[in-house]
Design a protein around this nucleic acid. Structure first.
Length: 253
DNA sequence: CCAGACGTTGTT
DNA sequence: GTCTGG
DNA sequence: CCAGACGTTGTT
DNA sequence: GTCTGG
């Protein structure tokens, strides 16, 4: 799954990275180290030109009676996104890019009674190492959005992130991972003239493990109230080396 | 036909 | 245990 | 995703 | 809004 991610750059850098005219950006958000569901975050949409908009993480279908859902919509499985009631139309007509610089997954450590202990890991794109502060580290998740309209006319723009099975780097930590768009696929994903589900599904592939990087982080990230550099500070220990060799990280607790 | 769901992950 | 809030 | 709440009446 | 279950 993907239930937490980072976007540690300014809105202006996001806009530049996704070809959004600076004059089009009316919102300014600072660097984020712990983006959580329900929060308002930048997403990119296109109608000929690219636009940056703030939307709420957790898709609320246009037909929903209330401005909330009784079920989770922070992620959409690629296996069912073309048929699920909540996502079928958004897949054809309301696709977006979700700008990010990294994401978190939690590895279940124990498994005894009650809720097992969990070790968070931080995942980034490997080619971005050493690109601190530059636009080079920004990538995009494949996303869908919808617009909910209340009786009083108010609009609520919401989005979801599409997930797929974990690749070899992610699997030791978690079964699933978000779909990261290769840069050359981004604009096609946004292209409103494409509405064939099969053509769109073909764009949704697991990102190659060889192009990603991961390391364990402290429990600081667990609380969405913590939103600073400490969330992505590497946790010292055996976990990193073991993980990069592709084995489970039972040694990290 | 109408009523009711519409979702994911993880855990058992 | 389960739902809500962030 | 995890953390934190989970309830009522009446009074300040 | 649209699909599934009864």
């Amino acid at each position: 799954m993907c239930g937490r991610y980072t976007l540690k750059v300014d809105t202006s850098q996001v806009a530049a990275r996704f070809h959004v005219p600076p004059t089009d950006v009316s919102v300014e958000t600072g660097p984020r180290y712990n983006i959580a569901p329900s929060q308002m975050n930048p997403v990119i949409i296109a109608d000929g030109d690219n636009h940056l908009e703030l939307m709420q993480w957790g898709l609320i279908p246009a037909w929903s009676k209330e401005a909330k859902t009784s079920y989770s919509t922070i992620n959409a499985r690629v296996e069912t996104v073309a048929t699920a009631s909540s996502y079928r139309k958004p897949l054809r007509r309301q696709r977006c890019l979700v700008p990010a610089t990294g994401f978190y997954e939690w590895q279940v450590i124990g498994g005894k009674s009650g809720r097992a202990a969990r070790q968070p890991f931080y995942f980034t794109l490997a080619q971005n190492r050493g690109a601190e502060g530059s636009a080079e580290q920004i990538f995009a998740f494949a996303g869908l959005y919808d617009v909910w309209r209340g009786a009083d006319g108010r609009e609520l723009h919401t989005y979801t992130i599409i997930t797929t099975g974990g690749n070899d780097l992610v699997l030791p930590v978690h079964e699933r991972m978000p779909i990261i768009m290769p840069r050359e696929v981004e604009q096609r994903w946004l292209d409103p003239t494409i509405t064939e589900p099969d053509e769109l599904l073909a764009l949704l592939q697991p990102y190659p493990a060889a192009l990603m990087h991961a390391y364990p982080v402290s429990a600081t990230v667990n609380s969405p109230a913590n939103d600073d550099q400490h969330c992505i500070t590497p946790l010292a220990g055996l976990g990193l080396a073991v993980l990069e060799n592709g084995f489970a990280v039972a040694s990290v607790v």
